[in-house]
Design a protein around this nucleic acid. Structure first.
Lengths: 205, 205
DNA sequence: ACAAACTTTGACCCTAGAGTCAATGTTCAG
DNA sequence: CTGAACATTGACTCTAGGGTCAAAGTTTGT
């Protein structure tokens, strides 16, 4: 047996890690499409072409699996926003607009159930709820930093930072509900209008 | 047998109507507190001090009962807004602010699950979904009319009417999530900030 | 090749909660 | 008072879906 201590992760470990990531990605897809309640472990298993039992080999239960899946989805989402070129250069106005536009487009196109995503059952144990909350914070930070920079530079003016961010997130989560069935140019127009509307929240009087 | 035709509703009919209203009120309470999924018919029955079977004497199933309950809740909510004195007099700005404030306070205090209210399962039959949609429209009209009046008088300026209303509703539905655990003055302050933030959506540049 | 570790299976258990219904109250008209 | 209409019960069925596990299958190191 090769020495597996000293932080060395063997092929087996990496294999396991890959499998877990596959499962999480698939679960995240489904949860993003339909929300927690509407996704059963059999759905997840079916899309992975395995049986439900296998999932329990990697996760102790549905809660843990879904929490981890939501984290995966959220981290992916956040890093896509962070790595958006237009969100890294130019005025705060340009950057915020780019962030809002991208966020809303990801929501509409990939996560129609975005609204349900963070709407975890209130019966969940504190640990999972904390993890989800932290995820929101990480995600929130992307917008918050641009907003505060814009405030510092005098480009923006707000009543208060928190409710402004909350309004933005609320509206963006709802976007799939409003624009989900629109297509093509019509949808683009609706999304642009939404972004412009949200930009009013930071406009100087 | 007394002639029950010719539109005459007898005592029995009225009795039945009252009972139905009791059931709907109770169901609406529960759905407003916890949302559709988290409310079972046994919960509703228990709060009414009857058994589940009785509910099936008045309603063919959970969907119909809950749809009707949501309608009851929504109509009640709408009419409370409509009958708000401050929403009927003064400038559009004053009226809109009053509406937003009242709406958000009703949500936080009475319907913590407001966010889940209109989030009906996508598996529901078209009929129920239509009824819910119409309910939203009725409710929307209260805000829409004040908004268009403000636009006509030049008090307001918006990117477009629909996304503006959508943002307002989205943010207000989220309010219980943000401010639900705050108490007293702190909560009041948070709600006022929220309302002021939303007023920026209609502010003239 | 072979055993040990790892992975997957599918049959199984269990519970929550929707929905049914014959039997049993209850109310009311005549 | 009495029968018919109305209302309620509680015990029942049925199903979806979470969770368990021994057995079988696969991979890996030597």
């Amino acid at each position: 047996m090769a020495d597996a201590s000293a932080g060395q992760v063997g092929r087996v470990q990496r294999r396991r890690g890959r499998r877990i990531r596959e499962i999480l990605t698939t679960a995240a897809e489904l949860v993003g499409e339909r929300g927690y309640d509407a996704v059963s472990l059999e759905d997840v298993a079916e899309r992975l072409d395995v049986t439900k039992g296998s999932l329990y080999y990697y996760f102790p239960g549905k809660d843990e699996l879904v929490t981890a899946a939501i984290e995966t989805l959220g981290d992916d989402w956040t890093s896509r926003l962070e790595s958006l070129p237009a969100a890294r250069e130019g005025s705060a106005t340009r950057r915020l607009r780019a962030l809002l536009g991208e966020h809303v487009r990801i929501a509409v196109r990939e996560y129609p159930a975005a609204l349900r995503l963070f709407l975890v059952p209130s019966t969940w144990p504190a640990e999972q709820r904390t993890r989800i909350k932290e995820l929101r914070l990480r995600h929130d930070r992307v917008f918050r930093s641009v907003l505060t920079e814009g405030l510092a530079s005098g480009e923006f003016a707000v009543v208060a930072v928190d409710p402004t961010l909350q309004c933005m997130h609320a509206a963006m989560s709802q976007a799939p509900v409003w624009c989900g069935e629109l297509r093509g140019a019509e949808q683009e127009r609706a999304l642009d209008e939404l972004v412009d509307t949200l930009m009013k929240l930071v406009a100087r009087g």
